[in-house]
Every structure is written in C-alpha cells, then in structure tokens.
Amino acid sequence: MNIVPFSPDQPHRTPNLDRVLHPDLKMLSPAYFGMVMATGIVSLAANQIGLLSVAWGLFVIALIAYIVLWGLTILRISRHRNRFFADMIDHLRGPGFFTMVAASSILGSEFLILANNLVMGFALWIIAVILWLGLTYTIFTAFTIKEDKPPLDQGISGAWLLAVVATQSIAVLSSLVAVQIEQPYRLDLNFLALSMWLWGGMLYIWMMSLIFYRYTFFRFSPGDLSPPYWINMGAMAISTLAGSLLIINSEDAPFLHSIVPFMKGFTIFYWATGTWWIPMLVILGIWRHVYKRFPLRYDPLYWGAVFPLGMYAVSTFQMAKAMGFGFLDVLPTTFSWIALMAWTLTFCAYLVTVFRLKKEQ
C-alpha cells in the first residue's frame, strides 16, 4: 500500500485517500461482504453450542466490517463509478454483489437472535430487500442483453450461487422477523419467506445445472476451483435453514400448516444435496492444493468457503429442531467447531496480509 510521500516542493500535497483506506480501492472485490456473511453465521453457530462470549465477539466484528465495507463501497462509487458499475455487469465479478444482500440479512438475523433488537433487524431486512430487487434485476438483465458474453467455461463459477444465497437469506430474515410482529403482517412476511424460499430453490436448479455441466464437460484446472465453489453446498444449507424456519412458523400461518409435508420433503432434499457436496468439495480441495500443489494464500474469496461451513451447522441444528431429528445432533456441534476453526484461520491470514501491506508502505 503506497502513500504519496511529503516533498518540500509540494508542501500542500496530501496522501491519496484511496491508497490510505485500501491498497486498491478501484479494484475492491464486490464479494468482500462475504467476510460479514461468514463472521455472522459463525457467530450464530457459536451461540447454538453455548459459546456466548465468542458469539458476541464475532457479532461485533461482523458489524464493524459491515460498516467499514459500506464506507469503502460508497467511496469507490464516488471515485471509481465506471469501474464499480462495470463490475456489476461482469459475468465473474457481478454475482459477488449479492454478498451485500446476504450480509445485510445475516447481520439482521444476529440482531434478532443475539440482541433481540427488532428495530435493527427490520431495518436490515428493508436494506436487504431493496438491494435484492436492485441487484437481481440489474445484474441478470445486463447479462441477458449485453452483446459481448464469455463462453460458459469462462463466465460461470460457484459465485453465481450467491444469488441463491441472497434470495434465501431474505426468506430466513423474513421468517425471523415474522415471529416478533403481530398479525396480519406476520402472515405477509411468512408468505414472502415462502415465496423467496421456493424461488431460491428454482434458481439453484437452473444455475447448478450449468455449473455441473461446466464441471464435467470442460477442462478444469486448479485455478478454476476458486473458494466460492463451496457455495455449491452453502446455497443448499441456507435453503435448508429457510425451510426449517418456515416449518417452525407453520403454527402461526394456516397456509403454511397446510403444506408442511411439502416443506419437510423439500427441506430434507436441500439438506441431503448440501451434505452430498461436502465430501466432493473436500476431495477437490485436496486435488487442488495437495496433488496439483496450488498455492494456499489469503484471498477474500476464502470467506465464501467459511460461510457454508457455519451455515451447514446452523441449518442442520434448525432442521433437527423442526423435525425432531435428534440423531443428527452431533453434526451441528461438529460443524460449529469446524466453522470456528476455519474462520480463525482465515481471519489470521487476513491480519497477516494487512500487516504485510503496512510494512511495504
């Protein structure tokens, strides 16, 4: 990170603010809100295994990161507007913007579950819905009408499933807010949650078909296996969580109660699909870093690998609660600890990277 040096010939020259705040603000990854997603869901995973102080500590970190990233994003829009909007319609970088939606929803869920703060939870719900509407119809419209498009193997990755995660995150937060408000708005929010849950599932089927086709019929190098491919599992885990919360809420919404068998079937379907991905992703990771010796170094995209682990822990816990699957109790505890370790390693790597950049100033 370079700061413009003071020179006697330029006594009034000040450091470039972009370089002071971020080593490359112009190229700031839109997926960096994945850090908030990962920290927030690991916080909730820690809470469910009784680590309350850890949960609150991670909550504070997630909140600070959310505020800082919004500050950097606003600064980037003001100073590099063309680059910002070019990223939004880029096939590889554009889906990363959906981390803004999911980060807002997960932070709102933390305010409801940990702080019991409905005002902040509802405010973040509004932000998430507005972002989802704006980003969904901007990004996918642009992808449809733009003239220059990359071939499938160069234009799609696991990051596209962040659109599914964003959609399901609104379903989750809507279900949590619905519990704390009175009728008739409780029915409205539960219906919105159900609609988003169903749409997110359909979106996963569309996108996963393309991703799996890219997996199996195109050349696959270690560099292609970026960390967001863990979203293959994370998208199913958050779909499981949304379905579980809808089942729990069914007593307060007659239209949900009438379709409980349907919701249970699809929730197990989502969970089973996400579970299938875990060994596959581990094997591919070993192939990438051990067999192919691809270097393992910090990348903001690794937050996209931490998030699915925490989400799997939380979603399995809620599914077991909603359906009385006590025999699954060992999984939420095990994956909560795995997610905590993964978050700690990634955060330490982040700090090392930051300190190294400071030394290079």
Score class of each variant (00 low, 15 high):
Ile3Val: 12
Pro11Glu: 12
Pro15Met: 13
Pro15Leu: 11
Val20Leu: 09
Leu25Ala: 05
Ser29His: 08
Gly34Phe: 07
Met37Gly: 01
Met37Ser: 02
Val42Glu: 00
Asn47Tyr: 13
Leu51Glu: 05
Ser53His: 01
Ile61Glu: 01
Ala62Ser: 07
Ala62Arg: 01
Ile64Glu: 01
Ala65Met: 06
Ala65Asn: 03
Ala65Ile: 04
Leu69Met: 12
Trp70Asn: 07
Trp70Val: 05
Trp70Gln: 04
Leu75Ile: 12
Leu75Val: 11
His80Glu: 08
Asn82Met: 13
Phe85Glu: 04
Phe85Met: 07
Ala86Thr: 08
Ala86Trp: 02
Gly96Arg: 01
Phe97Gly: 02
Val101Ser: 04
Val101Lys: 02
Ala103Thr: 02
Ser104Gly: 04
Leu107Gln: 03
Ser109Ile: 09
Ser109Glu: 09
Glu110Cys: 11
Leu112Ser: 05
Ile113Ser: 06
Ala115Tyr: 05
Asn116Leu: 13
Val119His: 03
Met120Gln: 06
Ile130Cys: 10
Thr136Asn: 08
Thr136Val: 11
Thr138Pro: 01
Phe140Lys: 03
Phe140Ser: 03
Thr141His: 12
Ala142Lys: 09
Lys149His: 14
Pro150Thr: 13
Leu152Cys: 07
Gln154Asp: 15
Ala159Ile: 15
Trp160His: 12
Leu162Val: 15
Val165Phe: 10
Val177Met: 03
Gln180Ile: 11
Tyr185Ser: 07
Tyr185His: 08
Arg186Gly: 05
Leu187Pro: 00
Asn190Tyr: 05
Gly201Met: 14
Ile205Ala: 10
Trp206Gln: 09
Met207Asn: 08
Met208Gly: 08
Ile211Ser: 07
Phe218Asp: 06
Ser226Ile: 15
Pro227Asn: 04
Pro227His: 03
Pro228Leu: 14
Tyr229Ala: 09
Ile238Arg: 02
Leu241Cys: 08
Ser244Gln: 06
Leu245Cys: 06
Ile248Gly: 04
Glu251Leu: 15
Leu256Trp: 10
Val260Ser: 02
Lys264Gly: 13
Ile268Arg: 01
Ala272Phe: 09
Trp276Phe: 12
Ile286Val: 14
Trp287Met: 07
His289Met: 09
Val290Tyr: 09
Arg293Ala: 12
Arg293Phe: 06
Phe294Ile: 03
Tyr298Asp: 04
Asp299Pro: 00
Tyr302Arg: 01
Trp303Ile: 08
Val306Leu: 05
Phe307Leu: 03
Phe307His: 01
Leu309His: 01
Ser315Phe: 11
Thr316Leu: 10
Gln318Thr: 15
Ala322Lys: 04
Met323Tyr: 09
Gly324Asn: 09
Phe325Ile: 12
Gly326Asn: 06
Thr333Cys: 07
Met341Phe: 15
Ala342Leu: 05
Trp343Val: 12
Trp343Ser: 05
Thr344Trp: 13
Phe347Ile: 15
Phe347Asp: 01
Cys348Thr: 14
Cys348Pro: 00
Tyr350Gln: 12
Tyr350Ile: 09
Leu357Ser: 11
Lys358Arg: 14
Gln361Cys: 14
